[in-house]
């Protein structure tokens, strides 16, 4: 029903216009904005948050949320990074991804088997996983010694991010799994009556989000060549902000990976643009706050 009336105007149009307007203004006033160098820098900046935001989109569409995602990223980076720094690159990457999957399964388990509200389960695992990561590493930074530097070079972080977005777009938009995700987010009870097992779908979604946190961990280590337990605390709210700017409803059942991509674009361009125009850092946070609300209002107006 909702679909029919919004088909004419793509849902993401208002925020897309917002992004385009911002880019146009920057491109006109600052010649360096569109330089290859700057685009590469923005791509690198967007990678970590972008990758985890895809998983977050699916989670929020199911009506859930994942507050532990940055902690999962940290723990998987530290577990795998130790092996990578010793030269065991393959094993290290596998360990990183497996840790991510494990943490995702823990979240999924608490939510489906333990029947806990997602916000509580993941707030709990946020505390547990973050402190485990710090205690496990003893607060030491690990160095990947250039073993996975390839992942952070040039446009590669951006390409990985785009690939992840592509995969997310296809999975969410064109597969049965994607339809089920929207279905249980829209109305879990009627989805159950239609023969969908919400527990299985949710488990799949949280595990994929964990896996993506692992991927983001590898890319982040590739870019920084080092990792330390306190390196990425902003990623959690950053990813949630990107998803909600992208028009995904926190109540579930509605939203899109496309929108999240635009959301990530908006926050990245804002950060970069603030420095390009020489905005005093004190104002940057206020501007970001205002942008979130403007995007939300634009989305609200579209629905009317």
């Amino acid at each position: 029903m909702n679909k029919i009336c919004t088909n004419k105007i793509p849902k993401e149009l208002p925020i897309l216009l917002f992004l385009v307007a911002m880019c146009a203004a920057l491109a006109v006033t600052k010649s360096t904005f569109l330089s290859a160098d700057n685009l590469r820098a923005m791509g690198t900046d967007a990678a970590g948050i972008g990758i985890i935001a895809v998983g977050m989109t699916a989670i929020i569409i199911t009506g859930g949320i994942d507050l532990s995602v940055a902690a999962v990223l940290a723990l998987s980076a530290l577990v795998g990074g130790r092996l990578i720094s010793d030269g065991m690159v393959i094993q290290g990457c596998a360990a990183t991804l497996l840790t991510g999957i494990g943490c995702g399964a823990l979240n999924g388990g608490l939510i489906t088997i333990g029947r806990m509200p997602p916000i509580i389960a993941t707030l709990g695992t946020l505390y547990i996983i973050q402190s485990t990561a710090t205690l496990y590493s003893g607060g030491q930074a690990i160095y990947t010694n250039g073993h996975i530097a390839l992942l952070g070079r040039g446009f590669i972080p951006l390409m990985i991010t785009v690939l992840v977005f592509g995969a997310g777009y296809v999975l969410m938009g064109f597969t049965k799994l994607g339809r089920y995700v929207y279905a249980i987010g829209g109305n879990e009870e009627s989805a159950r009556l239609a023969g969908i097992n919400p527990a299985h779908i949710k488990m799949a979604v949280y595990v994929s989000a964990g896996l993506l946190a692992g991927v983001a961990a590898l890319v982040t280590m590739g870019i920084n060549n080092t990792f330390q337990a306190n390196d990425v605390p902003d990623y959690m709210l950053g990813a949630i902000a990107a998803v909600v700017i992208g028009g995904t409803s926190i109540m579930g059942g509605e939203g899109s990976v496309r929108g999240t991509m635009i959301g990530v674009g908006i926050s990245t361009v804002l950060r970069n643009g603030a420095i390009l125009v020489g905005l005093d850092a004190r104002w940057t946070q206020a501007v970001i706050g205002a942008a979130i609300v403007i995007a939300a209002i634009a989305d609200r107006l579209r629905r009317r």
């Binding site: 709210l237 926190i250 206020a286 970001i288 979130i292 609300v293 609200r300």
Partner: peptide, 27 residues
């Protein structure tokens, strides 16, 4: 106001005022 009158989602509104209030504190 944003939550009740404009019917925006609480987490979105307060996420934004979280950033804005901290920024204004610095300002």
């Amino acid at each position: 106001f944003f939550i009740a009158r404009l019917k925006l989602q609480p987490i979105v509104v307060t996420l934004s005022s979280m950033a804005a209030a901290r920024g204004m504190a610095y300002v």
